[in-house]
Design a protein around this nucleic acid. Structure first.
Length: 573
DNA sequence: TACTGGTGCGCG
DNA sequence: AAAGCGCGCACCAGTA
């Protein structure tokens, strides 16, 4: 194929199949190729030696089949995710063309696990609604996005955000394809230990039945259904336990023989229903847990998950995460990511100084701001979440005196939100505007005939929104830092030499010979790696955190220390 | 039968 | 019952 190496290759569908548009560094299209054979082979051929940035409507739709065929790509531009960022970003001067392209507001296409093999042939599958599929639509949208970028204030930040977001989309697809190594036997043994042996269909585990019997006995009500909140509440009140709810916080404050077994029952029931044998059957196959990650599924830019409860795995079950033979796990999380990010955003030297080293909360105590680590923690969380009462709210003023720059940043974000404005993360992701109902309520409270109820509701909603925007800037920027970390680690891992495939795990050819990301949870990653690379991977993960910090905050001296362990030595259980 | 809202609890 | 942000999922109860 003659011609220059394209900087961008847009993939999309046309009447006669899949077509690629080749764009130069200026974004000018100079050729189109119809892809007659296997898409995976064509992509693979174009990936080396000079990897283009693949432009496609929706990463899971295009990349999952490529991964299934054994092809990885280095970089992409996800049009759907980028559209959502640019459409709303405060940094974009003129987003009207993007806003008008409503077809790109489509929800992410979340596939069922059973549909994964079917996606192998993307041309044949009937799929739920997603963004446009045609090449022409993709080329047009890409042009709109480039135009929006060139007119944007601080386009460098937005370009960084789009690159990080798109890298995240690749990583989400790869995480799903690789899976988290999961030892079903360990999980089963753990369940049996806590709940009793796996019950027959229709029955409850023995430990649950026993606890339930003790509750019913203590309540003198042999028929009460413990899963029914109204029934349980009535039964509790009948024996003098006057609670407003059945949550364990409130129950724990009462002294009655029914309380202990009830709390025990709730704990067991949670494990059984959320992560019991049914979960194991549905979500773990061939030694892998494969959750569906949803990049940017949260308004702040955090990832969400759909199915499998990937982001809510109880810490207890971490014991079932086991590397394959000859492999190990590098598990790393950032200590106190959000306050560190806040220090960087606000250029708050004092907060950054307190954060230097491993424990930011200890640093705050050493600075004499508060007297205990526990106080430092609730005060800081309270400041970022908008606490006004309780221990947390009481301590916030001390924090405000000690770290005025950082606190002003979150206070300003809250004020903007209360007034109906929007706020942005460090790289330019902007919060959604207030809802129509919110705005109406604020207007109504200002009317001459407004009632007390109108006014108090408007004030409450304003404060609620203020807490949201206050937290948005911090949580969203932390998500950006994490994406930068992930993307850096991913790139560096790809440079490590593959190892012999003798002990190839069941994760497919793409991931059987190389270290790969296996899990991600807001401020934590797990890398599954051949033993030979464990130390190199640990170094990459650490360096990645430092590089992410520099990418976002340049020379500003805030560090991002990791708690890092190489499993199985110290896997938390 | 399918939905929606409320409750409760797991994670960061 | 959290106080103070962001989620997903299971279950129940009420409704269509």
């Amino acid at each position: 194929m003659p011609g220059p190496d394209p900087s961008w290759i847009v993939l999309g569908r046309a009447d006669d199949g899949i077509v690629a548009a080749l764009l130069d560094g200026e974004g000018i299209e100079f050729a189109r190729d119809r892809i007659d054979g296997e898409l995976a082979a064509w992509v693979s051929g174009r990936e080396a030696p000079h990897a283009p940035r693949w432009v496609w409507a929706d990463t899971p739709a295009w990349y999952a089949p490529l991964l299934a065929a054994g092809v990885r790509v280095a970089r992409c531009h996800d049009l759907r995710l980028s559209h959502a960022i640019l459409r709303d970003s405060e940094l974009v001067a003129s987003a009207s063309a993007l806003r008008a392209a409503r077809e790109w507001d489509a929800a992410p296409r979340v596939e069922e696990p059973a549909a994964l093999p079917a996606l192998f042939d993307i041309s044949e599958v009937e799929r739920p609604a997603g963004p446009p599929e045609s090449l022409d639509a993709a080329v047009l949208e890409f042009a709109r996005q480039r135009a929006a970028l060139t007119q944007a204030r601080d386009p460098a930040r937005l370009r960084l955000l789009l690159a990080a977001e798109s890298a995240g989309a690749l990583i989400a697809a790869e995480l799903r394809a690789a899976g988290l190594p999961w030892d079903a036997a360990v999980h089963d043994a753990l369940l049996a230990d806590v709940l009793g042996p796996r019950p027959t269909v229709g029955a409850l585990p023995a430990r649950m039945e026993e606890a339930a019997a003790r509750v019913r006995d203590a309540l003198g009500d042999p028929a009460v259904h413990l899963e029914s909140q109204p029934q349980l509440l009535r039964a509790l009140r009948r024996v003098g336990i006057h609670v407003e709810s059945t949550s364990r916080w409130e129950l724990a404050e009462h002294d009655h023989p029914a309380i202990a077994p009830l709390l025990e029952y709730k704990k067991l029931a949670r494990l059984y229903t959320a992560n019991g044998w049914a979960w194991l059957d549905e979500w773990v196959h061939e030694g892998r847990f494969r959750p569906v990650y949803v990049p940017a599924g949260v308004v702040t830019g955090r990832w969400a998950s759909s199915g499998g409860g990937a982001l809510q795995l109880p810490r207890m079950l971490r014991a079932a995460v086991r590397a394959d033979p000859g492999w190990t796990l590098v598990v790393a999380d950032v200590a106190q990511l959000e306050p560190r990010v806040l220090a960087g955003m606000a250029s708050d030297e004092r907060l950054a100084a307190a954060a230097r080293g491993r424990d930011l909360y200890a640093g705050i105590v050493e600075g004499g701001v508060v007297s205990t680590r526990a106080e430092a923690k609730v005060a800081l969380l309270g400041a970022m979440y908008g606490a006004t009462t309780g221990d947390s709210g009481r301590l916030v003023p001390q924090l405000r005196r000690a770290f005025p720059r950082a606190m002003r940043l979150v206070d300003d974000a809250a004020t903007a939100g209360e007034r109906g404005g929007v706020v942005s993360t460090w790289l330019g992701r902007t919060s959604p505007p207030p809802s129509e109902g919110w705005t109406k309520a604020q207007g109504r409270a200002g009317d001459v005939d407004a009632t007390d109820a109108d006014e108090s509701r408007a004030r409450r909603w304003a404060r609620d929104r203020g807490r949201f925007t206050r937290n948005f800037v911090v949580q969203g920027t932390a998500a950006e830092w994490a994406l930068a970390w992930l993307a850096d680690v991913r790139g560096r891992l790809a440079e490590l030499a593959p190892v012999g495939g003798d002990a190839a795990p069941a994760s497919g050819p793409v991931f059987s010979t190389r270290p790969h990301l296996a899990f991600y949870l807001h401020d934590e990653i797990i890398v599954h790696t051949p033993l030979a690379h464990a130390d190199a991977v640990a170094a990459i993960v650490r360096e990645g955190a430092a590089r992410a910090g520099r990418l976002l905050f340049g020379d500003f001296p805030v560090d991002f220390p990791l708690d890092l362990r190489i499993s199985p030595a110290a896997e938390k259980g």
